[in-house]
Design a protein around this nucleic acid. Sequence first.
DNA 1: CGATGCATGTAACGCGTTACATGATTAC
DNA 2: GTAATCATGTAACGCGTTACATGCATCG
Lengths: 173, 173
Amino acid sequence: MSLRFALLGLLDDAPGSGYELTRRFEHTLQRYAWHAKHSQIYPELTRLADDGLVAVVDEGARGRRTYAITEPGREELREWLRNPPVHKNVRNEEVLRMFLLSTLPAAEARVLLEQTAIEAERELAELTEVVRAQDARCGEEGLWFGRLAAEFGLRQHTATLDWARWALANLSA
Amino acid sequence: MSLRFALLGLLDDAPGSGYELTRRFEHTLQRYAWHAKHSQIYPELTRLADDGLVAVVDEGARGRRTYAITEPGREELREWLRNPPVHKNVRNEEVLRMFLLSTLPAAEARVLLEQTAIEAERELAELTEVVRAQDARCGEEGLWFGRLAAEFGLRQHTATLDWARWALANLSA
DNA sequence: CGATGCATGTAACGCGTTACATGATTAC
DNA sequence: GTAATCATGTAACGCGTTACATGCATCG
């Protein structure tokens, strides 16, 4: 069900076609929150339109249909946000791998931890750039929530990096 | 495919039946890494046995079958760990919700952020207890990797808590 | 006029959830 | 004896991925 709300969220920001929403997914939600391919997005947009939560507001070249969120769609999205689920279903292969490091000899586990640290550093460097660019344009409307997401990523990666370093420091002992 | 490796990982720690593995899932991997229900676990164990990666080592009351990992199973698990995927597929409803907070009026977003902070605090308190207990039994074999996982959770929750507080502090401004 | 990118769709298959279904053992 | 827990299974459905399939528009 989350895909619907991811799409409604993107459309709440601005109208877009299936093709464009697929790109926006890649550039915004993909990294930390959610991912979906066009083969899933197109049918879901059709269903959302059938349910009246989005509407086609423009048709352009090459059969392009631009969708916009409707008022019922906005209300549906808000309702979803107001009622978080009690049980959180986590499924993160990255973390699973970390948990199963135990099954490797220490030397190999160490290599993987080092890779984890390096990747976290790289992501941190990228995100720091993003935040710097955002802060430079400080004050613009609608920017705040992109900043919120970036800050979240920043802190998650920092935590992972620190953890990997801590693990490496304690592994040899 | 990850379910296979989650099961192999649990069995690498100790043999167990489908029922028992379901419980172990709940108590170990569920929170941060992976979750699965018995209806998925039983058929997967059958398949793993068919592939020779696990074997039935005991049959007890009520049709209970205890499985153990085999040497080919161990090798398969190690190979999986040694070859992390290039593209990481994230799907985290929690984070998606945070990203879409923008669609709510500030006052409501604030309430949700406060709830996020409270939950992170609660989880932190729980985990801190776990770690304290672990450290008390320091030196035991096999404990280190449980400690590794707990430390990871500790740092993730701390990051989330700090982020929520940062967001609240900056939201009103 | 050919390559690239825009734009949409669907069919088959696999993974995951919910619900249904059954029965043995243990503790009170 | 009856309630709780142990213990296993399967069928139907929904979500997600891969692969197949098509054609228009733009740029050079």
